[in-house]
Amino acid sequence: APTVVALYDYTANRSDELTIHRGDIIRVFFKDNEDWWYGSIGKGQEGYFPANHVASE
C-alpha cells in the first residue's frame, strides 16, 4: 500500500476515524473520495482520516 505522512494532528470524531499526529506514516488502503481516505498506522489502528492533513512522502 502507498504511504503518506501526516502534516497536522487530527483527532477522530467517530469510531471509524483514525487519530493521526504530525509526522505519522500512514498506509493508505483506499481513497474513499477527495476528502476522506482510509488507512492504518502501525498495527490495529485503522480508519478514515482527512486527505488534506497528509502529503506524499
Rank of each mutant, 00 (worst) to 15 (best):
A12D: 00
F29S: 14
L18S: 05
G44S: 09
K31W: 07
G23V: 01
H21W: 04
H53C: 15
A6L: 02
G44Y: 15
N52M: 06
I26A: 02
T11K: 08
T3F: 08
S56Y: 09
I41G: 07
T3R: 10
V54E: 03
Y48K: 07
E17L: 05
D32V: 12
P2N: 15
E46C: 07
R14K: 15
F29W: 14
I20W: 03
L18I: 09
L7E: 09
A55K: 14
V28E: 00
S40P: 06
W36G: 00
R22H: 04
Y8Q: 13
V4W: 04
Y10Q: 00
H53A: 15
I41N: 15
W37L: 07
D35S: 11
G39Q: 01
D16S: 14
S56V: 14
A51T: 10
I25A: 07
F49V: 02
H53R: 12
P2M: 15
E34N: 08
E17N: 00
T3Q: 11
E17H: 13
D24P: 04
W36C: 02
G47Q: 00
D32L: 12
V4L: 05
D32H: 10
S56R: 15
G44H: 05
K43M: 08
N33P: 01
Q45N: 06
E46I: 05
R27P: 06
F30K: 14
T11P: 08
Y38C: 01
D35K: 13
T11D: 09
N13D: 12
T19G: 02
I41L: 15
D16P: 05
D16G: 12
I41E: 02
E57A: 06
H53T: 14
Y38T: 02
F49C: 00
I20H: 04
D24K: 04
S15D: 10
K43W: 09
R27F: 08
R14D: 14
I20G: 03
R22F: 01
N33S: 13
I41K: 14
T11Q: 10
Q45S: 07
L7I: 07
D35L: 08
V54G: 03
Y48Q: 03
K43R: 12
D16F: 07
E34R: 10
D16M: 07
Y8V: 09
V5E: 10
D35V: 10
D9W: 00
F30Y: 14
Y48I: 00
K31L: 06
D24E: 05
N13A: 12
D35M: 10
R22C: 06
Y8S: 11
W37C: 06
A6M: 00
Y10N: 03
R14A: 11
T11C: 10
A12S: 12
K43F: 09
E17G: 06
T3P: 04
W36P: 00
P50K: 04
I26Y: 06
I25H: 15
L7C: 08
L18V: 05
A12Y: 13
G44T: 11
Y38L: 03
